[in-house]
Design a binder for these strands. Sequence first.
DNA 1: CGATGGCTTGAATCGGCTCAAAGCTTGTGG
DNA 2: CCACAAGCTTTGAGCCGATTCAAGCCATCG
Lengths: 288, 288
Amino acid sequence: MLVIRARETLVATSVNLVSGHMPHMTADAPAAPREPLLVRKLYRHSPLSHRDRVGLTRALSLDIRSVRTRSTLGEAGAAPRKLAVMLEGWACCYRLLPGGRRQLVAYYLPGDICDLHTLITPRPDTSIVLLAGARVARLSREAVAALLRNHPALSRALWWDARIASSIEREWLVNLARRDARERVAHILCELIARAETVGELDGDSLAVPLMQADLADACGLTPAHLNRVLRLLREQGLIAWRDRRMLILDRSGLAELAYFSPAYLGLDERADAQTGCEATLFSPMPG
Amino acid sequence: MLVIRARETLVATSVNLVSGHMPHMTADAPAAPREPLLVRKLYRHSPLSHRDRVGLTRALSLDIRSVRTRSTLGEAGAAPRKLAVMLEGWACCYRLLPGGRRQLVAYYLPGDICDLHTLITPRPDTSIVLLAGARVARLSREAVAALLRNHPALSRALWWDARIASSIEREWLVNLARRDARERVAHILCELIARAETVGELDGDSLAVPLMQADLADACGLTPAHLNRVLRLLREQGLIAWRDRRMLILDRSGLAELAYFSPAYLGLDERADAQTGCEATLFSPMPG
DNA sequence: CGATGGCTTGAATCGGCTCAAAGCTTGTGG
DNA sequence: CCACAAGCTTTGAGCCGATTCAAGCCATCG
């Protein structure tokens, strides 16, 4: 059974990830002015020296934009974009199809890189839009190239990040193809809860969700009307509730059980060097 | 409109990719004993020296297995796998869900790497199975690490390959979520045709498809019964036909039009260094 | 020759869609 | 401070596409 049994499992995860005990983050590194969430995330999963972290932090501080809700970070069909990194707020990435159909392919939360592959894509066919007033750091390709040159360890960290992003997209694929509406919605909600938790956005049992129902529907491959009915079901089953723009998580394990949600694919507790013997050198650019 | 207008478009592509005119593949490199399709594909899209190609070719020749149909290349939940590279035959990668549901997430054709990310995944949740008697080259993690150490240019080539694989999976996601059964099936068929063409598996207007209908159904997120009905529709519309185990492509542009198929996401005519100025050094491991 | 496994088809059912109208909020201007 | 508008949410009725389950068909192989 892939089902998580009880709330404690996830809470334990969160304690480990959010509130401190990072295995190799000892007192030696008080870090730069304020380490962006991305830096902390990468460091948590992949070995980076203090110098690497400072370098990345600096690079991320050069071009920061506070952007308003519903503004765009990149249009389909345009030239290759700068790389965007979420500092605050949520965003999503979507494809438009003929007939006005829209499908989200990813949500981006603070600390996420917006579609790393976009950097080497000649003409992206996706658009990225901000879902709530957000702050974003942007990196030009030149900046990324320089970073990788000066901080080879970042290459492996980015491979790790790309793998997790890819793994999430694969989960969505399976979710869309083989689960019914209720499972689908519950699954996405579980994922958002877990991801929000690791970046400290979960406030007790409630979460500010800056999505319209249409945004959720387009992620779940449903019509807004049907998504609304599904949400009502989940409400009536006592799994969730809504107040203001917040989702109240009444029965997290029930939600996970309904969706067959298992957070392994999010890679929350992975350590890049611990898991596999040779990986440490795998995509490391420098010989040795 | 994303629709391709006429057959000529695709045929032109194929001439460029298959039968020779590779921009930087001049007479200087007669290549090793027999360059595997993977090497040719990477070289076509990403600059590799003669030495790089020979090195990769050698590495791919060390552990070759001829495996019989329906045998497995890796089970879900097992330890991280060796990296498998398709030499001949087709394979697929799938997820199993509770209730006996199965969903394919990728087809692998000759020249494809089977789930590159699997190499750094602690416990893959997917299984890979061969669809037709196939030959596969396997690389241990150590072998990959050594390759990357000795041939830094491979790192960029693999980034490219991972991006395309990821782009295909994204297309599947959208396909499953937002197209109806007919479009979905037509789309996957178009993709298989295009990919088979670039590796020389397309014989005029027919293609040997080593799939059972259940394999197609599980890729399209349909039941075998309904997939069967959809195939009949496509047959009745004069788009395709079947003889022996071969698909006859009667109206390729009609099929593409029905599916809104645009092959851009396959990256067939991309050149890694041509498209974007700085990419040449982007993920290149060596300084400079 | 029968057995097996995949293909094909039918009838009934159900989940999710479409379209439309009615509630709610939120923000804006009088 | 109220009134109105715009946009999001909620709900209903009817429909359609895909599923389920079952049976019959057709190749292939022992």
